[in-house]
Design a protein around this nucleic acid. Sequence first.
DNA 1: GTCTATAAATAGATAGAC
DNA 2: GTCTATCTATTTATAGAC
Lengths: 205, 205
Amino acid sequence: MKSSNVVKVSFKQQMLKAREDAIIETVNQLLAEKGFEAMTVDEVAASVGIAKASLYKHFPSKEDLAAAAMVRVMQRAQAFIKTLQPASPPLDNIRAVARWTMEVKLAGQMPSLPSQNSSLRATLMGNTEYMDGLMEVSDTLGAWIEAAQKGGTLNPKLPAIAVLYTLYARACDPVLEFLKMGGQHDDTQIVEMVLSTCFDGLNTR
Amino acid sequence: MKSSNVVKVSFKQQMLKAREDAIIETVNQLLAEKGFEAMTVDEVAASVGIAKASLYKHFPSKEDLAAAAMVRVMQRAQAFIKTLQPASPPLDNIRAVARWTMEVKLAGQMPSLPSQNSSLRATLMGNTEYMDGLMEVSDTLGAWIEAAQKGGTLNPKLPAIAVLYTLYARACDPVLEFLKMGGQHDDTQIVEMVLSTCFDGLNTR
DNA sequence: GTCTATAAATAGATAGAC
DNA sequence: GTCTATCTATTTATAGAC
């Protein structure tokens, strides 16, 4: 009897999680496509295929809805970073993260960060899961950056924080979509080009 | 009598233009601060200090209001480019444009480009003034880029269009505001750092 | 052209039945 | 938890007096 209950509850929870995953997936896509302000809860509900009121049973507000999607992306980033070899040259890992970020963006799955004074910003900053993830990622990348600078592969004259921000900025680099719209290059080529401009610069070497 | 009329009309038109300039100035600032979707017409009216209905006598829609601000920025870019010496090394002029773009952005006067499927996008693409300005700027920069690539100062392996997009992207580079928020560097230092990452890359040279 | 007042549409969010 | 129906606030846009 007890174990039966446990199983039932677990099953229900699995269903719940599956649905919430579907919701977050949709929100993620809409955030990447049009941003937080332009995305409407009606759209989300229609796209998921449930009533708007049902959405609000899962998430208390539009901000929390978006925050859940941001948390998921952050978790994916953390998961990807864990697949990298700590023993690899730091620059290799840094480049791998930049490449991953751009691939996600090109796949239309990178939610654009909220602009300066969005209501989403405050929600995100109060979201422990998101902030913890952000800090963990920043710590890992920061260590790699400093190691690469000491190792002489990354320019040691740049503040490490500037390098870190430059990496983060690949998540919202419009060059990727511009080049994709041009139709002259496939995703792989685009990623390689932007990687080149990012690490090697525009000038001749 | 006739000349008096002419003067009167001209004066009225000057007043009109002055007011519209003030409106556009405000819109420009709001666009830079929060983007098109988050900016409201009420805000604009309140900030300018006139009634909302009066705004609509000047501009037929929110999109046209924003487009006017975008046109003005484009005109400023064109004006700045005209101050540059055609005989200068192309790379110098390219860097000057990049620097100017970032300075405008840091001053909070660079409206963020509308995301992929914004209603503003369509309006802008149908705005001859804006599109003509964009093409003129692109032609000038494009010529400099190709000259710099032939001259061996810009990496000739990169498609010129990719270089052009990379320059345009400085107008919405979040690294600038991130570094500014950090408070560790002044605007001049920030511009120099981002210029360095843009043209020299993150790697050691 | 500027204003007050008001439409008309849409947004985020909730009530309450099932 | 899901739904339909509704609320409340806000938003873009207009009417109409001056």
